[in-house]
Design a protein around this nucleic acid. Structure first.
Lengths: 235, 235
DNA sequence: ATTATCTATAGATCTATAGATAATGC
DNA sequence: ATTATCTATAGATCTATAGATAATGC
């Protein structure tokens, strides 16, 4: 045996009946990938555990070594597409919503849009699918999603100007803003890519929805750039 | 027996094990209603024929007297949500696209938005669901949908002004316009109603997407009013 | 006779478990 | 010993058909 272990290093465990392609992914991640693509393109309920296994190149029963069935796989995929937002929303609210509320909203929208734009196989769609929404797994995520909507609402409320406040109710504002961010999902569904520049455009749209002036928007975008470099404090 | 047949007139056929509620609907339509609600709220693949039958109050096997299974029911629902548009698109294009293209686009968008707004249980969502899109039934509707997108593209192309034409490709324009109309589906999914006024606003949005001036939009909306009263000719 | 249901059920999935097996790693 | 697979299969749906039955209508 050479001391230079190759990428194709053989793993422990009985070999697959269809030999593994030289995939850099761990088996668990291979399964997540395959499931993501099938769930998004054919539907969650329409995808059987056998479909997933076939795509990976293993036997149906072998899935259960890595996951507790289809619901377990779904749970992990849902987690992947919201964790980044949830992790950062609290920090963003604390950091700077008081003095520059529009910067905070811009930042949250940008992170969200970016996550949705880069997450594999457009799994942001899962949240929109009725078979997912009515699954037991989804119930566990509902509180987190509502909290996220509420955060958008609070941040938006700090930005809104008089005429906007008169038109759109505060409890609708959060939903409206998330809606705007989720354009990313729709664009990707059409097969188009969403660039970092697109994401900034979407974040700006969120501020416009709140009635922010173009000047405030430019300032908010500028504040972000400082963040990305320096990190943390709200100059 | 009285000569005054009641609405609850007994029908031929063996009685149901769960007696019919006094539904004005024909059994076939009862099934369509129940299926529409389940397909949209739980998903097509996630809904079994037994679920549908239960909701109607009949036995699972009895569905097959009225439909050729789940796909047959789906086909009829899909039909319901596009037939009005398809029926009228040709007439609209012939009537007046040459002299007042913006009126034609406005009219088509309005009819579409109105259909999507009033169709029962928001069945416009079906076209967006991956389990539906990958079903065999859906393939049959794809040509009609593409033709509809193409019609939006042609009508839009007659309206676009220079700066818009420079930005958005002509083959994308149709998709973009349909996208705008389908906001109706999204709004209804949120639980909100879509009024006739909302539909007019969406039709106007379509013209704005093409870069039409507010004046042209007002004129287009006015032309419609003439139509609704008089019918047919393009003054 | 016609219509609209019913009951019963075969056959096709689909999920999930039990237990065997073939690798690596120590 | 540990890990990751395999084979085999029980039990739970789910779809779709065959044939019986209970109404109305003529």
């Amino acid at each position: 045996m050479s001391q230079y272990a190759l990428a194709t290093a053989t793993r422990p465990g009985r070999p697959r009946v269809v030999p593994r392609a030289t995939s850099a992914l761990a088996p668990r991640d291979e399964i997540l990938q395959a499931a993501a693509e099938l769930f998004v393109n054919r539907g969650f309920a329409a995808t059987s555990t056998r479909d997933i296994a076939e795509k990976v190149g293993i036997r149906q029963a072998s899935l259960y070594y890595h996951f507790e069935g289809k619901p377990g796989i779904l749970a992990e995929l849902l987690e992947l597409s919201v964790r980044p937002s949830l992790e950062k929303v609290e920090a963003i609210e604390l950091e700077c919503s008081a003095d520059v509320p529009e910067a905070a909203l811009y930042r949250l929208a940008l992170i969200d849009a970016d996550t949705l734009a880069t997450v594999p196989h457009n799994i942001g769609r899962l949240y929109r699918m009725p078979d997912v929404r009515s699954s037991e797994v989804f119930e566990g995520f509902q509180p987190a999603l509502q909290e996220l909507t509420a955060a958008y609402g609070r941040l938006g409320a700090g930005v809104v100007s008089g005429p906007v406040a008169a038109t759109v109710g505060l409890n609708q504002l959060g939903a409206l803003l998330i809606q705007a961010v989720e354009v990313v999902i729709r664009v990707r569904s059409r097969g188009d890519e969403v660039t970092r520049a697109d994401a900034r455009g979407i974040a700006a749209t969120c501020l416009r929805i709140c009635g922010a002036s173009e000047e405030r928007i430019v300032r908010a975008a500028g504040a972000i750039r400082g963040w990305d470099r320096g990190g943390g404090s709200c100059g």
